[in-house]
Computed example of a mutant assay.
Amino acid sequence: MFYRLLIVITLTLLTVVGCNSSESGSRTQERAQTSVASDTHKADHNKATRSDGATTADVTKSCLLNVGWDPWEPYQYQERDGTVTGLDIDLFVEAAKRAGCTVRFQQGDWGTLLSALKAGQVDVLLGASITPLRKQYAYFSEPYRAETWVLYVRSEDVDQYSGKSLKKLLDSGLRIALVNGYVYGDTINAFQEDPAYERQFKGYGLAEETFNALMNRDVDGVLEDPFVGADVLRRKGWRKEIVRLPMVLHSGSVYVMFSQASVAPETVERINDAFAAMRADGTYRRILRSYGS
Rank of each mutant, 00 (worst) to 15 (best):
V67E: 09
T112K: 12
G53E: 01
G108Y: 01
S62P: 00
Q76R: 13
R27P: 00
Q33Y: 12
T83A: 14
A57F: 03
Q78I: 13
D81P: 04
T102R: 15
K61W: 03
N46I: 03
A43L: 03
L64P: 00
A99W: 14
S51K: 10
P74Q: 14
P74H: 14
T85L: 04
L87H: 07
R104I: 10
G108C: 05
T40Q: 13
E23L: 05
A54I: 02
C19M: 13
P71C: 01
A57T: 07
T34L: 06
L87N: 09
C101I: 02
V59I: 15
C63A: 10
V16K: 01
T34N: 08
A54Q: 14
A99G: 11
Q33V: 14
T56S: 03
S38W: 09
L87F: 15
T83H: 08
D70C: 04
T83C: 02
S26H: 09
D70H: 10
A54S: 11
Q107S: 05
G86N: 07
R80D: 15
E79P: 01
G82C: 08
Q29C: 11
A96R: 07
C19P: 00
G100M: 07
N66T: 15
A57N: 02
S35K: 15
A43I: 02
F92Q: 14
K61H: 12
T55S: 11
K61N: 08
F105N: 01
C63F: 06
Q33D: 09
N46L: 01
V84K: 10
T83S: 12
V67P: 05
Q107C: 02
S62F: 04
S35Q: 13
T15E: 10
V84Q: 08
C101A: 14
G18Q: 09
C101F: 05
E30H: 12
V103W: 00
V67W: 06
S38Y: 05
A37S: 15
V17T: 13
L87W: 12
H45T: 01
S38C: 15
T40N: 11
C63V: 05
V17F: 14
V84L: 08
H45Q: 04
L65H: 08
V17Y: 13
